[in-house]
Design a binder for these strands. Structure first.
Lengths: 191, 191
DNA sequence: TTGTAAAATGAATTTATGTTCATTTATTTT
DNA sequence: AAAATAAATGAACATAAATTCATTTTACAA
């Protein structure tokens, strides 16, 4: 007897990302997805109960992958500023190299498919970064009178815009610009 | 003979915003839109040639409204910092009070409906703010070695996150927080 | 090598959504 | 107040998308 080829699932996810980043979540059809990923429409229903389940599992898959990348290489032994910069650059790089992933996660977030619990799960993505901010305060390096959330939003919002501009416009993030961007962010939050 | 009731068009737009902010652009159907705005489906086709034209005109309508609000009350006679703060607060207030408008514009931007020229038009929204930034540089008040675009993205990204957090989460923008947020932004860009 | 069970297929079916149209209703003009 | 005209209606129709299923193909076990 023949066994399922679970590698197909990832092929489907990747095709989904491509289509969604081009046309938005509204533009994804099962037929289009099948064509793009090189399987028959019927095959999609062997691996996924429905379009809804497909989106649901795709969301979990990419959310976890994103999460893993943010803190990559962060080492609490290194000086705070070095560590913060690593997280800053990680997030920027992530959003540039996996832009369609970010687009999908954000579109899904405001789609008819999102559920309550997934909403809560998304919050978990922030925790590790919050820990870094708390450390900066403990070491008296960043502003103590501003709450963690606001510091977080200031950094994240900036990086988000930079990455989106890099991918969709002519504004490109060279190493020099990354350096300057982090310097700006640092000037903002430092004591 | 009976005349068209153009007030209906705005009712339809508003119903559209509501549905889109709840379910995303993917979730908007002509039937649902008709029900929500209190007209018959057929009536929609008296005012709009098609769903595509509806989205198209709705986009132009809200883009212009947004545009008008950003520079409201800005007076080049006042000191630079005062003017910048006004723009900062305008954008924050706009995104909070007209959140579903912002959601729509961003979702439309990445939907199958967007056209090339609309893409270009969206860029125009930035120009007045760029002028403010240039003025700050001329007056030697903000960093001269950072390009206008980066300064713009840093401010806009921050405000965007604050507003979204205010609307969708428990984090609320009180007057004190607005004050602190602008101080953060100012520390970032000042000479 | 061959039988078998499940995967894979894509045309057929069902379901949902966009659009049209014959009919009714409201407003204006004479 | 009656006629004329266009708006408004919503059921009917056309189209497109999701899902199913009879059939074929493939990988593994005997």
């Amino acid at each position: 007897m023949r066994s399922k080829d679970y590698g197909k699932v990832e092929l489907v996810y990747e095709a989904g990302l491509e289509l969604i980043s081009r046309e938005g979540i509204a533009g994804l059809t099962m037929k289009g997805l099948a064509a793009r990923s090189g399987v028959a429409t019927g095959t999609l229903y062997i691996y996924f109960r429905s379009k809804e389940e497909l989106f649901h599992r795709m969301y979990l898959y990419y959310r976890n992958r994103s999460l893993d990348r943010f803190m990559q290489g962060y080492d609490p032994v290194e000086p705070f500023r070095i560590g913060l910069k690593k997280v800053f650059v990680n997030y920027l790089t992530h959003r540039i190299e996996h832009h369609s992933e970010s687009i999908f996660l954000e579109q899904y977030y405001r789609s008819p498919y999102i559920t309550e619990e997934q909403n809560a799960l998304a919050e978990a993505m922030k925790h590790p970064v919050y820990e870094v901010i708390k450390r900066g305060k403990r070491e008296m390096l960043i502003k103590n009178d501003i709450d963690d959330e606001m510091l977080f939003l200031a950094m994240i919002g900036f990086v988000r815009e930079l990455a989106d501009e890099h991918v969709t416009k002519q504004y490109k993030m060279t190493p020099e610009r990354i350096e300057k961007a982090f310097q700006l962010a640092w000037d903002m939050i430092k004591m």
